[in-house]
Design a protein around this nucleic acid. Structure first.
Lengths: 210, 210
DNA sequence: AGTCTAGGATAGTGCTCCTATCCAGCAAGC
DNA sequence: GCTTGCTGGATAGGAGCACTATCCTAGACT
């Protein structure tokens, strides 16, 4: 398959494909000659994946690169690979650098209480959680730590279900793909359902209120 | 309070404050003279809110404007206002224009099954849901509609909890603020916890796998 | 043989979100 | 009173991101 066919069958422009190859998101085609390369189904799949992550998940190109790199490192276990994926997918939202030890402890407590014993002690996500908690506290939302008690079992059930969906009989690249798509697309699904639920419950409470 | 004090006490630069005023995100200060205006605690609160939404939620400036406008329309009920807020906060992620009636029906079925009877029949979120479902199906994720059965009670519990937190004794602007911050910041909180749970559960399943 | 297209390099575009500069008028301290 | 500095307002400029368009020459297809 030539580059123009790849472009046609994925809806991604040739220029963009070249850009992705330059950025290392997509391997170059197998060279047939100096001026001709061959692309296969792997390229189609990868390209579709990249577009879904960008369009639905708004994942920045740099994060996509990190994901690709994580898949490439064949010495890491599947779990390590997923850990790197989680790090990369933490959206570029900025939370304040906490530096507040107390908040970090609070975050660790939440992870403990949830029973998530396998989370790396140095996972960047813990600091991110601490940052979010600081924002929650500053905003005067009454959602911590009592709130955590509400969230934790729900989130745990969610994650259990989602991880159970992953077919462990596949190769690591396919697993990575399922994991990443699950993280991003099902995350969007989740937030979408939550907005719908918010609309319903706000109607129950405030329909008459002006 | 002058503009420089407002800038100091919020950490937002004077230039940015001027920009927000131009964009209609922030009301101009009360004019004391041709070249002097007074800003009060309302401005500080609003500015902090805007920064949280942008930094943590990555809410685009245009969406912030829509939120402000929704609050301004004093004829709408609180619920209508929240509906507009939900519309504005649906992140700018693009899902394919479905146009597929079947998918839209599937989305409506999910809302029905969840019992969210108060969701507007023409809520844009329904189409968004249909778009996400189409992506899920295309991606080969095995998460529908059986998957919905897993998500719906969890999401409903979440939304119930979050809406119950809102203090209905306040004025509409304060309620809007709580709603929006809850939607955005707690949404980020939720996704953060979910990533942590993913890390834990992936370790349980794939720690040894290469 | 001539037209097309590929791949590669590089420069430019459109968008968003600010940031910097300029201006003239007041405010307050000396 | 006069300087210094800050103000609101307008407008231009800039950084970052994700592409997109152009140019070029070698090789492929007809």
């Amino acid at each position: 398959m030539r580059i123009s066919e790849l472009a046609d069958s994925t809806g991604v422009s040739v220029a963009t494909i070249k850009y992705y190859v330059r950025e290392g998101l997509l391997s170059p085609g197998r060279k047939l000659s100096e001026r001709l390369a061959d692309y296969d189904d792997q390229h189609v799949r990868r390209l579709r994946l990249l577009r879904v992550l960008r369009d639905v998940g708004a994942v920045p190109v740099g994060a996509l690169k990190a994901l690709v790199d994580a898949t490439q490192d064949r010495s890491a276990s599947v779990h390590d690979m997923f850990g790197k994926a989680c790090d990369a997918l933490r959206t570029e939202t900025t939370v304040p650098e906490t530096s507040d030890i107390h908040l970090r402890e609070l975050a660790d407590q939440i992870v403990d209480r949830a029973g998530w014993t396998k989370v790396r002690p140095d996972a960047p996500e813990r600091d991110h959680l601490a940052g979010i908690i600081s924002v929650i506290l500053d905003s005067g939302l009454p959602t911590d730590p009592e709130g955590a008690a509400t969230y934790l079992p729900l989130v745990d059930a969610l994650a259990t279900y989602e991880l159970d969906q992953i077919d462990a009989t596949q190769d690591r690249e396919a697993m990575m793909e399922q994991m990443v798509v699950g993280q991003v697309v099902l995350g969007e699904f989740l937030l979408c359902l939550r907005r719908l639920a918010h609309e319903h419950h706000s109607a129950l409470r405030f329909a008459e209120r002006r």
